[in-house]
Design a protein around this nucleic acid. Structure first.
Lengths: 149, 149
DNA sequence: ATCTAATAGATGTATATGCATCTAATCGGC
DNA sequence: GCCGATTAGATGCATATACATCTATTAGAT
């Protein structure tokens, strides 16, 4: 008696969101020992790669509403991981990793790496590659097409 | 000056979640006229397909924590879309679409269909197919492997 | 039948997420 | 330089999401 597979869903969005929940739980379990949520880790890693950016730019990179980032960045600011200062345009904040943020990221990286490696192993190299390519391609198709500079 | 593409993210989970946010926004925009969130539509559609199920079963189908469904089903119950009754095991609730729920689903389906079709057109048939196959495969790999009946 | 362990949901808490709306600051015309 | 339109974030609100913990109920062992 094989256990019935999780049934397929007719909705592309629903199917994607379901998988997203599963992946999120895997990564959050891995990051729990260092007290990071998936989104927070992503912000740390992105800031580390992108350097100093405004909230709106970070929102674009992550396809996340800028007002969502207001809350997340507040939480992370309280913990001292993100430093912000006013830009030349005094409406905007320019955010970057603080020292403590770099430390936190360094502490988290091995845990993230472990989740990532484990996932790759479970899915196999080919499926993993395809997954990255596909999500990136979908993102590019839906966001970067038909936008002016 | 081509606009820079949304950069790729090193984290599989982050990349997936970003795409998930984009898709969710597309579908939620389409469903807004009928007052449904993506999750709520998914619950309606799933109940329609699955018939009467317990909260835990619904959670398994959607890979969603059962306690998350407590809140979602409460909201949907208040709106009269979901009917529940106690099962033989009196700890559990058996949920099903109510008449009003079926009506609501019928009202929503054309809007969902439009989003789904539009997305398929934007991505192309091949990418869309791959997307469905891949998300399903990842879900099966991560959930249905190594579980006893 | 009884007592313990396991299970189904409910609740408290924290974060994630986006929209509508608001304020402050900037930009474009004039 | 002034004024209306736009833009960057902030805030109120509703929902989504999961974990820890609690209660009610069932299942299992004796």
């Amino acid at each position: 008696m094989t256990k019935p597979l999780t049934p397929s869903l007719p909705c592309i969005c629903a199917s994607f969101r379901r998988t997203s929940r599963i992946l999120t739980q895997l990564y959050e379990e891995a990051l729990r020992p260092v007290g990071l949520r998936a989104t927070q880790f992503t912000v740390l890693q992105t800031l580390s790669l992108a350097g100093e950016v405004t909230q709106a730019q970070l929102g674009q990179i992550l396809a996340m509403d800028s007002t969502t980032l207001t809350r997340t960045l507040n939480i992370m600011g309280r913990r001292g991981w993100v430093a912000k200062r006013r830009g030349a345009d005094r409406r905007e904040w320019r955010m970057r990793l603080s020292k403590a943020g770099e430390t936190q990221l360094k502490k988290a990286l091995p845990h993230w790496e472990k989740a990532q490696t484990r996932l790759r192993r479970q899915l196999g190299a080919e499926l993993s590659e395809n997954l990255m390519k596909l999500t990136q391609k979908v993102t590019n198709t839906l966001i970067d097409k038909g936008e002016s500079s």
